[in-house]
Simulated scan of single mutants.
Amino acid sequence: MEWKSCYLDIVLVPLSLAMSLAYHCWLWHKVRTQPLSTIIGTNASGRRFWVAAMMKDNEKKNILAVQTLRNSIMGSTLMATTCILLSAGLAAVISSTYSVKRPINDSVFGAHGELMVALKYVTILCIFLFSFFCHSLSIRFINQVNILINSPQDPASVVTPEYISELLEKGFVLNTVGNRLFYTALPLLLWIFGPLLAFLCSFTMIPLLYNLDFVLGFNKQGKIEHQINTCGDCESQ
Rank of each mutant, 00 (worst) to 15 (best):
Val159Ala: 15
Ser131Arg: 07
Pro155Glu: 11
Ile149Gly: 07
Lys120Ile: 11
Phe128Cys: 11
Phe130Leu: 10
Tyr121Val: 05
Ile124Gly: 02
Phe141Ala: 02
Ala118Glu: 06
Ile127His: 05
Val158Pro: 11
Pro155Ala: 10
Ile124Pro: 00
Phe130Pro: 01
Val158Ser: 15
Ala118His: 06
Ile149Gln: 05
Asn150Leu: 10
Gln144Ile: 06
Phe128Val: 08
Ser165Ala: 10
Leu125Asp: 01
Ala156Leu: 15
Val158Trp: 13
Val122Ser: 07
Gln144Ser: 04
Gln144Tyr: 07
Ala118Leu: 06
Lys120His: 13
Asn143Asp: 01
Cys134Val: 04
Tyr163Val: 07
Ile142His: 01
Tyr121Thr: 03
Ile124Glu: 02
Ser157Leu: 12
Cys134Gly: 03
Leu115Ala: 14
Leu129Asp: 12
Leu129Glu: 13
Asn150Pro: 04
Ala156Ile: 12
Ala156Trp: 07
Ile164Asn: 07
Ile142Ser: 00
Ser151Met: 08
Leu148Ala: 10
Ile164Gln: 03
Ala156Cys: 13
Pro152Gly: 10
Ser151Thr: 10
Ile142Leu: 04
Ile147Cys: 11
Asn146Pro: 00
His135Thr: 09
Phe130Tyr: 09
Tyr121Gly: 03
Pro155Leu: 10
Leu148Tyr: 12
Met116Pro: 11
Thr160Glu: 15
Ile149Leu: 06
Ser138Met: 02
Phe141Asp: 02
Tyr121Cys: 04
Thr160Arg: 14
Met116Lys: 11
Glu162Thr: 07
Phe130Gln: 07
Ile149Trp: 02
His135Tyr: 13
Asp154Phe: 15
Ile139His: 01
Leu137Ala: 03
Ser165Trp: 10
Leu125Ser: 02
Val122Phe: 07
Ile147Thr: 12
Glu162Asn: 06
Asp154His: 15
Ile142Asn: 01
Thr123Cys: 10
Ile139Val: 00
